[in-house]
Design a protein around this nucleic acid. Sequence first.
DNA 1: ACTTATCCCTGTGGGC
DNA 2: TGCCCACAGGGATAAG
Length: 321
Amino acid sequence: MPELPEVEVVRRGLARWVRGRNIDAAEVLDPRSVRRHAPGPDDLRANLEGARVLDVVRRGKFLWMPLVEAGDDAGAVPPFALMAHLGMSGQLLMEDPALPDEKHLKIRLTLSPATDTDGSPMPTELRFVDQRIFGGMFLADLEPTPDGAPGGLSETGMPLLPSEAAHIARDPLDPAFSFDEFYRRLRSRRTGIKRALLDQGLISGVGNIYADEALWSAKIHFARPTDTMRRADALRLVETARDVMTRALAAGGTSFDSLYVNVNGASGYFARSLNAYGREGEPCLRCAEASRTTLIRRDSFMNRSSYSCPVCQPKPRNGRW
DNA sequence: ACTTATCCCTGTGGGC
DNA sequence: TGCCCACAGGGATAAG
């Protein structure tokens, strides 16, 4: 279940392998993975072939690779982007072409030969594998960002942004993230705090796992109305979200099964560090320290599971938060 | 204009 | 053994 840390792990890995290389060939094995691209899969293939990858950029859970026509060093043609979203189960894998196709291989890019810093040959295939097909790829035009700030996290910090990702807010790890703006918009909402946390237009990168983890760490009930959030509450929540995602990033991401892997096919190790998510019926680690026996409960919320501690994250009976 | 519900997908696992 | 259903859930879009 890729959220910000997992997507950032993929972005960093991918950037190391593909920056500066040309796309020699593209192959769409399942047209359903070409999303939001009206001209269709064949147009996607035709535009990718012969393009050069400038960088790998992330904003929230969207990834994109700014591209130029190979050999267009004069910049005669404006850069465009190959957009990617991993959805629930998407993987971007760098692999040797000799490896057999994955069962759910959807799109294959063949890159120009390149050598690593130690002189060894780099893998030449970038494969998009996606079992549940909630993710996908498409082409987008790049526009200058309104404020001139980087369009997203990347090594080169290009101030270019696809319009399809322009509505995605900055994430808590983005240097351009503004808590003041987040808090102002949060207070103007008329909804619950977890729903707001999952709204990528308000704050990006947070999914169901890290939302539950941040709320648990900040001791906030998931249904608390956003307009009751005091500034200190919101600040604590953003800081816990930033903290848990930073630690997950350092651990290589969270993985419960083989669905999430980095570009080299390895899973992260953060799952063992979770305090709330997936721990229904297990003791709350915070309450246990206080010699209590409170158990983590699971609620159905927004058609998904919410894990929380009924003691640490209480819902007031009188309605006053 | 803003908030909420629905749908898109496939594999897994539990109940019967 | 096999069938059915719940579950996993990000995001676009329809509906309220």
